[in-house]
Design a protein around this nucleic acid. Structure first.
Lengths: 203, 203
DNA sequence: CCGGCGATTGACTCGTCAGTCAACGACCGC
DNA sequence: GCGGTCGTTGACTGACGAGTCAATCGCCGG
């Protein structure tokens, strides 16, 4: 029967395939890799991938959803706290950058294959992606209401600029356009918030 | 022989195919469309696409290079002028947004299929893309040297934040996350520069 | 008119994979 | 140790689409 042990083993196998998929997608890209590459990387038979996932797409869907839901949850959570806007935005930036530091391959896949691929996969997840933007916009609105942020820049717009800056920095790390390390990661957190809130103008 | 008339006719045919490709890529995406879709859209035979282009990739390459080279040229040109940094950044923002206003489908293709698809096509054009980032960074450096911009934010970083903000706004238009029109386009130009230079903080 | 050359056509080839499925194996309860 | 269930295997199929190429067209110079 489907005992707890069986369930755990199944979850482990599933994880094994997902982890392999992350490595393969990061290395070769979703479109360029074959399902057999994932199976080989995971050390399982081709058909087993289809035992755990409906299709190749479903594997990427799972990777994206599992991770993205954490982010939207965090955004909502942060907004509920009683903090200065800067701290809220810093918390979001930290979360994203730490996600990258912790698992660069997974973040590469999510950004390159989903978030930035709004034509193919992003289209499917547009609602979820939008949810993150909207959450950030809400935070900005609260900051505006509290008099912390200027009101002549719409919250939707500010959210796009903020998120766009973060994603561009991650992308520049992913493709080695800017150097990445512990130091750079910490600096980036401050710099992004500082740029967006403080602006580039000399004082 | 290859007379001037023949040459002109050939250029026209080539253009015809390129224009069709823009429409098809914008509608269906590069990976999802077939070469026959481009041929059908252009009203020519399948094989003719291969008479004018080495491969399907070459069509997209051409579209990207033709447009992107204009942008890097503009960036270099703007930097040579004696203007306040804000005006320089405004000029770049204007150019990109006007490009979108003038030919949204072409810009959609370039952003979605190349710039934001650094894994597949972007990889091929990484050098050209980088050239634009570097050009913006140079402008920031000159602004810093002139005392117009703060120096505690590195120019590379500032360039990423600036470009990232622009691209995110375009992306939000492309996928109908924000409304687009003449008014929004003009507002966006000011807002992007204002956000990046002035910052979101209330004064 | 004719010969020739480049433009144009579209049926065909050929490789590539996503997804299927029939068979095999390991484990468990009885 | 027997039967059954579910995890696992990997060869196979069917669809699809990029790129080829031999045949046709139409223009132009002689």
């Amino acid at each position: 029967m489907a005992t707890a042990k069986n369930g755990a083993a199944a979850a482990e196998r599933r994880r094994q395939i997902l982890d392999a998929a992350v490595r393969v997608f990061a290395r070769q890209g979703f479109h360029t890799c074959r399902v057999s590459d994932i199976a080989d990387e995971a050390g399982v038979a081709y058909g087993l991938v289809y035992h755990y996932f409906r299709s190749k797409d479903a594997v990427l869907d799972t990777l994206f959803r599992d991770r993205w839901s954490l982010m939207t949850a965090l955004i909502e959570d942060v907004d509920r706290q009683d903090l200065p806007v800067r701290d809220k935005l810093h918390a979001i930036t930290s979360f994203i950058i730490d996600s990258y530091r912790h698992d660069p391959e997974l973040m590469k896949v999510i950004i390159v294959e989903v978030t930035r691929a709004a034509n193919s996969f992003g289209q499917t997840h547009l609602t979820e992606i939008r949810k993150a933007y909207d959450g950030i916009a809400t935070i900005v609105e609260h900051g505006q209401a509290a008099g912390e942020l200027r009101t002549d820049i719409t919250s939707q717009f500010a959210a796009m600029a903020f998120y766009g800056a973060i994603e561009q920095v991650l992308t520049s790390w992913i493709f080695d356009l800017l150097p990445f390390g512990e130091v750079e990661a910490e600096q980036a957190k401050t710099l992004i918030v500082e740029t967006i809130c403080g602006g580039l103008d000399a004082k």
